[in-house]
Amino acid sequence: MALSEKFIVLPFKKNRGAVVPGEMRQASSAAAAEKIATAMAPRHIGVAAYSVQVDEESGDMTSPKLIIGFGEVADLNAA
């Protein structure tokens, strides 16, 4: 199992009263993820940038670490 660090940005939206993640965007670095999240923040109820560990074979993502967050975001570790 080969793990690599990836950077993702998630916008959040309301769905039936709950805060849920929208479409994930990848970023090339932590700084790029922070820049994307900052630019998206005014258009969403919440936006967060994370670093995650990705299993290169299965594509599974684990160990999300928050880089920056704006507004209402859900806890990815609780899932």
Rank of each mutant, 00 (worst) to 15 (best):
K35W: 00
M40R: 03
V73W: 08
I67S: 02
A37W: 01
A18T: 13
D60G: 07
K13C: 05
A18M: 09
G71W: 13
I36W: 12
K65T: 12
G22E: 13
V19C: 12
E56A: 02
F12T: 05
S58A: 08
P64Y: 05
S51G: 10
P64E: 03
F70M: 04
A32K: 06
A49M: 05
A49C: 14
S63Y: 09
R16Y: 05
S28H: 01
T62I: 15
A30F: 04
S28F: 06
A48P: 15
S4Y: 01
M1N: 12
F7K: 13
E57D: 10
I45R: 13
P21Q: 05
D60T: 01
M40G: 08
S4V: 14
Q53P: 01
S51N: 14
A30W: 02
D55P: 00
E57N: 03
M24W: 02
K65V: 12
E72F: 11
A48H: 03
K13W: 01
I8W: 04
A33Q: 07
S58E: 07
N77V: 13
A37Q: 04
D75Q: 14
R43F: 10
M40C: 13
V20R: 05
P42K: 06
Q53N: 14
K35G: 07
Q26R: 09
Q26S: 11
S51A: 11
P11K: 03
A18K: 12
F12V: 11
V47A: 06
F70T: 00
E23R: 04
L76C: 14
F12G: 01
P21S: 13
P42G: 03
T38D: 02
A49Y: 01
F12K: 03
E72V: 12
A39G: 13
S58M: 03
R16N: 15
V73Y: 02
D55L: 14
P11S: 12
G22W: 09
A39Y: 09
S28Y: 11
A37L: 09
G46M: 02
A27M: 10
S28W: 14
L76E: 13
Y50M: 04
A27K: 00
K35Q: 15
I45T: 11
S28N: 12
T38I: 05
G69M: 00
A79Q: 04
M24S: 08
A31E: 07
H44D: 06
T62K: 08
P64L: 10
E23K: 12
I67L: 15
I36D: 09
V47D: 04
E56F: 10
E72W: 10
G17T: 04
D55F: 10
A27Y: 07
Q26G: 05
P11C: 02
G69K: 14
A2C: 02
S51Q: 08
A33S: 03
D75S: 15
G17K: 02
V54L: 04
E5N: 10
A79H: 06
H44P: 00
P11N: 08
D75A: 11
P64G: 10
S58K: 14
H44C: 00
I67G: 13
S63R: 09
R43K: 08
M24Q: 13
I67T: 00
